[in-house]
Simulated scan of single mutants.
Amino acid sequence: MSPPDAGPPRPARDDRPPSGIGRYIKVWFRFVPREGWLPYDTEGLWATRLSADTARVANVPFLQDGVAEGETVRFTTDADGVHWATGRVAASGNCTVRVLPVPDGPLGRDAHAVHERFAPFGLGGEVFSADFPLVALTVPGGADLGAIKALLIRGVAEGWWHFEVSCVTDAWRVA
């Protein structure tokens, strides 16, 4: 028996947090490729490791549906050390919107022009590549969702772009 001032028992070796807590890891998502779309069936997203099997997504997905920047996901690690997403633990309140400029439209293939249209809303995002100027945007839950939706619809009507919303919230649905 330990003396009363010995403090709490040390955790078992397996109970210690992994040494990478707080560091970026790549979490991979598997999905079925869409016909007529990019020919990928996985996407790796940077994430901040929170525990032995959870991480917070740190960038916006181009391909994976149903997840947004800031979401907490659970993962398993395979024998090769690859972290595979197994599900969402906590929603972020953010939405993911993908915008593809129409090549022969008023914006051409200019991803920067897409970013400029959304700059007044403070939206951040990434561009897939110079050859394929798909812009993936993170839309925070506190943004002016109604105005963003109106701009997206206007852009389609004026031939600027095509868009899809790949991760939605209840706030987005009612805006």
Rank of each mutant, 00 (worst) to 15 (best):
L100T: 02
L100S: 04
L100D: 08
L100A: 05
P101I: 13
P101Q: 12
P101Y: 10
P101L: 14
V102D: 00
V102A: 10
V102P: 07
V102M: 06
P103D: 12
P103Y: 10
P103R: 15
P103V: 14
P103W: 11
P103T: 14
D104P: 03
G105Y: 08
G105N: 08
G105M: 09
G105A: 12
P106Y: 05
P106D: 12
P106C: 10
L107Q: 01
L107C: 03
L107I: 05
G108C: 10
G108W: 09
G108K: 12
G108R: 13
G108Q: 11
G108E: 10
R109Y: 00
R109K: 15
R109L: 13
D110H: 09
D110I: 06
D110G: 09
D110P: 05
D110C: 07
A111R: 03
A111G: 02
A111W: 00
A111S: 11
H112K: 14
H112E: 15
H112V: 14
H112D: 15
A113W: 03
A113R: 02
A113D: 05
A113F: 02
A113G: 05
A113C: 02
V114P: 05
V114W: 00
V114T: 00
H115F: 15
H115E: 07
H115M: 14
E116Q: 09
E116G: 05
E116R: 08
E116P: 09
R117L: 13
R117T: 01
R117S: 06
R117D: 04
F118W: 04
F118T: 02
F118H: 05
F118E: 00
A119E: 05
A119R: 04
P120T: 07
P120R: 10
P120Y: 09
G122W: 00
G122S: 01
L123N: 01
G124M: 08
G124I: 07
G124S: 09
G125T: 07
G125P: 02
G125N: 09
G125F: 06
E126W: 03
E126L: 13
E126M: 12
E126H: 02
V127L: 10
V127N: 07
V127W: 06
F128Y: 14
S129T: 12
S129Y: 04
S129K: 09
A130V: 14
A130L: 15
A130K: 14
A130G: 13
A130F: 12
A130M: 13
A130R: 15
D131I: 12
D131G: 15
D131R: 15
D131E: 15
D131T: 15
F132M: 14
F132Y: 15
F132R: 11
F132W: 12
F132I: 14
F132D: 14
L134C: 03
V135P: 01
A136K: 02
A136D: 00
A136V: 03
L137S: 01
T138E: 01
T138L: 06
T138I: 04
T138P: 06
V139S: 03
V139C: 01
V139I: 07
V139K: 02
V139R: 06
P140S: 12
P140N: 09
P140D: 10
P140T: 12
G141P: 02
G141A: 10
